[in-house]
Computed example of a mutant assay.
Amino acid sequence: MAEKLFERLMYATRWLLAPIYIGLSLTLIALGIKFFQEIFHLLPHVMDVSETDMVLVVLSLIDIALVGGLIVMVMFTSYENFVSRLDIDENSEKLGWLGTLDTNSLKNKVAASIVAISSIHLLKIFMNAENIESDKLLWYVAIHLTFVLSAFAMGILDKLTKKPAH
């Protein structure tokens, strides 16, 4: 009896994750504010800004969009995998990947997103390379390559450990 009660209580604690996912949704609001702050800062100067600076701002906006997509993916997939299935009405829009990502797939998508975000940061740094010390450039490249190799290794490990479907 006590064991059953303990197991139910332990299982119910998964709901402690729900507020964390709500918190992640609040970070989307913060990202949206930053996104539009960048746009409103750029618009009055769009005719005066150099092409390089324009590209840097656009890369920042893409970066924010990628991070936002990553947050949505982590938030919904983690909620479905660890807390409860989402009951989405059949008549409403449903994201195509909902319910299809397990924790390994999510891990690989997060790793790929980190590589994409890191690539954008590295491109921004390269576009401003004349103002950056060469030893710092080397560190940026090394860190980016670490992300790339980590994502690659995770993908290989996932393939090696996946059981073939029968």
Rank of each mutant, 00 (worst) to 15 (best):
V72Y: 06
V74E: 02
V74H: 03
V74G: 01
V74M: 04
V74W: 02
M75V: 04
F76W: 06
F76N: 10
T77L: 01
Y79V: 00
N81V: 02
V83R: 06
V83K: 05
V83G: 07
S84H: 15
S84K: 15
R85C: 03
R85V: 07
R85S: 15
R85K: 15
R85G: 04
L86H: 06
L86Q: 03
L86M: 06
L86D: 02
D87A: 10
D87F: 12
D87E: 14
I88D: 03
I88W: 05
E90Q: 14
E90I: 10
E90K: 15
N91T: 13
E93L: 07
E93V: 07
E93G: 07
K94M: 11
K94E: 09
L95N: 09
G96C: 05
G96S: 06
G96F: 04
W97A: 02
L98N: 11
L98C: 04
L98W: 09
G99V: 10
G99D: 05
T100Q: 12
T100D: 13
T100W: 04
T100H: 11
L101W: 09
D102L: 06
D102V: 05
D102E: 12
D102M: 08
T103G: 04
T103Q: 14
N104P: 02
N104G: 09
S105V: 03
S105F: 07
L106S: 00
L106R: 00
N108C: 11
K109N: 14
V110H: 03
V110Y: 03
V110W: 01
V110T: 08
V110I: 15
A111D: 13
A111V: 01
A111H: 07
A112D: 11
A112S: 12
A112V: 08
S113V: 08
V115M: 04
A116T: 08
A116N: 11
I117C: 08
I117N: 07
S118T: 11
S119K: 02
I120Y: 00
H121C: 03
H121E: 07
L122A: 12
L122T: 08
L122K: 02
L122W: 11
L123Y: 01
K124C: 01
K124F: 00
K124Y: 00
K124W: 01
I125D: 00
I125C: 01
I125G: 00
F126N: 05
F126T: 04
F126E: 12
M127H: 03
N128T: 08
A129E: 10
N131H: 07
N131Y: 10
I132G: 11
I132L: 11
I132D: 09
I132A: 13
E133T: 08
S134I: 12
S134E: 10
S134R: 08
D135V: 11
K136M: 14
K136V: 14
L137F: 05
L138K: 10
W139P: 00
W139I: 12
W139N: 14
Y140A: 15
Y140Q: 13
Y140M: 14
V141K: 02
A142G: 15
A142P: 05
I143Q: 06
I143T: 08
I143G: 09
H144C: 02
H144P: 04
L145T: 04
L145C: 07
